[in-house]
Amino acid sequence: MSAGPDTEPERAVAPPPVFLERQSYRRRRLSDAARLLPILGAGLFAVPLLWPSEPEEAGAVSMSSAIVYIFCIWVLLILASAGFGLAARTHGGSDTQGPERD
């Protein structure tokens, strides 16, 4: 009676293929990037935490540059999000079951 690991019954279901087609691989990495986007955004929006918070401190950031920074990041995120949405649509991501209605 030797029930070693090699005597375990074989799984009936074949494992999914290790390598994907190039297109589905691209699509998956694309959705990975889309998922990372909010984390990146949160990080970038947290950068002002490093700025001196008291107006009297040395190296205080002027309001105009702060506005430019925040809004630039914002536009960047919107563009990236729109880009991912567009790419997902053209790539025919796995979640699209048909053409967009509009």
Binding site: S53, P55, A60, S62, M63, S64
Partner: peptide, 21 residues
């Protein structure tokens, strides 16, 4: 406008870090 902003009383970045987050 930007110049005006910088010259105003809220002209520098002065946000409480805790509140921001």
């Amino acid at each position: 406008t930007m110049a005006r902003i910088d010259a105003s009383e809220i002209g520098t970045w002065g946000v409480d870090r805790g509140r921001w987050a």
